[in-house]
Amino acid sequence: MRIALIQMPVLPDKVKNIQTACGKIREAAKNGADFAVLPEMFCCPYDNSCFGAYGEPEGGEAQTALSHLAAELGLYLVGGTVPELSEGRIYNTSYVYGPDGRQLAKHRKAHLFDIDVQGGQRFRESDTLSPGNAITTFETAFGTMGLCVCFDLRFEELARCMCLRGAKVIFVPAAFNMTTGPAHWELLFRQRAVDNQCFTVGVSPARDEQGSYVAYGNSIAVDPWGAVLCRAGAEETTLYADLDVERLEAVRAQLPILSARRTDLYEVREK
């Protein structure tokens, strides 16, 4: 199961961003990728002032381009996120397409990024965006997969619910910044992988030091033992991670975290 982690630059030009993404997805297919993963807000500068202007309704320009390309290339496509316009609201939404181009999943970011770190980053997604209300998994030829967006990964309960549904990989389009990224990015992806004995895959935009929001980059894939399989720097790049899903079962057999849970004492429940 080969994953292409596409760490691409995001410009203030939606059409150009879509073209860049499609070109990199084609390259990933040539390199044998079964899944291609784009970053959070791949077609839109990560700025509250841009979300409405760059947004699109269900079946919009970016979504249609990705759906058609997934079918053309015969791969799974985790389409980063786009600003989704729906009934007067804006959501930070990730769409997943199967090898036939059919939409397999849609996840609206559930936990909005409202932070104010003393001496660091301040950002309030809730000034513009609305939260989703779903735990998202989807089925593939490789098994069940999980999907969340950026800040969602900080909430272990959400990851555990995906895991209990059978998720072997948790895909995370994300855009950590230069305050939270160095402190927590790798730590969170490794911890969620270890907690849930699954693979985690995080894909960020490439870093633009001149942007209004400077993404950390460092797209990453981690195995169920917590080992980093690949990690980018700040640059524009595509990484490839070959995931051995049999490794997941081996780790779970050796270290029985999931099977040894004391559900007589505690339980994580889905709504």
Score class of each variant (00 low, 15 high):
residue 219 S to W: 02
residue 47 D to P: 00
residue 75 L to F: 02
residue 270 E to Y: 08
residue 90 I to E: 01
residue 178 M to P: 03
residue 239 L to I: 06
residue 33 A to S: 13
residue 248 L to D: 02
residue 172 V to D: 10
residue 68 H to M: 13
residue 214 V to K: 06
residue 1 M to G: 08
residue 179 T to L: 10
residue 52 G to T: 12
residue 253 A to G: 06
residue 78 V to W: 03
residue 78 V to N: 03
residue 258 L to W: 05
residue 187 L to Q: 13
residue 202 G to T: 05
residue 41 M to V: 15
residue 261 R to N: 11
residue 2 R to W: 10
residue 230 C to A: 12
residue 135 I to M: 04
residue 175 A to I: 03
residue 240 Y to L: 09
residue 220 I to C: 05
residue 243 L to D: 00
residue 38 L to S: 02
residue 55 G to H: 07
residue 239 L to V: 00
residue 230 C to D: 01
residue 4 A to G: 02
residue 142 F to A: 15
residue 211 G to Q: 08
residue 184 H to G: 12
residue 122 R to Y: 12
residue 12 P to Y: 07
residue 244 D to N: 14
residue 59 G to A: 10
residue 37 V to H: 03
residue 38 L to Q: 03
residue 164 L to Q: 11
residue 212 S to V: 12
residue 28 A to E: 02
residue 199 F to R: 09
residue 96 V to R: 05
residue 116 D to L: 11
residue 174 A to R: 05
residue 9 P to T: 06
residue 18 I to G: 09
residue 45 P to V: 04
residue 233 G to E: 05
residue 260 A to R: 13
residue 252 R to N: 06
residue 118 Q to H: 07
residue 35 F to L: 09
residue 43 C to A: 15
residue 87 E to Y: 10
residue 109 K to V: 09
residue 169 V to T: 14
residue 90 I to C: 14
residue 34 D to E: 12
residue 126 S to M: 11
residue 99 P to Q: 07
residue 246 E to M: 11
residue 125 E to S: 05
residue 37 V to A: 11
residue 131 P to D: 07
residue 119 G to A: 09
residue 138 F to L: 00
residue 171 F to S: 03
residue 110 A to V: 13
residue 24 K to T: 08
residue 187 L to F: 14
residue 207 R to K: 13
residue 246 E to P: 01
residue 131 P to F: 09
residue 207 R to W: 04
residue 237 T to Y: 07
residue 38 L to T: 03
residue 34 D to F: 11
residue 194 V to H: 02
residue 122 R to S: 15
residue 159 A to I: 08
residue 194 V to Y: 10
residue 51 F to M: 12
residue 77 L to E: 00
residue 30 K to M: 15
residue 198 C to R: 02
residue 139 E to F: 04
residue 46 Y to F: 15
residue 162 M to E: 11
residue 231 R to E: 13
residue 34 D to I: 03
residue 155 F to Q: 11
residue 149 V to E: 02
residue 5 L to T: 04
residue 270 E to T: 10
residue 225 W to Y: 13
residue 55 G to D: 08
residue 230 C to M: 01
residue 69 L to H: 02
residue 36 A to L: 05
residue 262 R to M: 04
residue 52 G to S: 12
residue 82 V to Q: 07
residue 197 Q to F: 06
residue 124 R to F: 15
residue 48 N to R: 14
residue 48 N to E: 06
residue 174 A to W: 04
residue 248 L to V: 15
residue 257 I to W: 09
residue 4 A to Q: 10
residue 141 A to W: 01
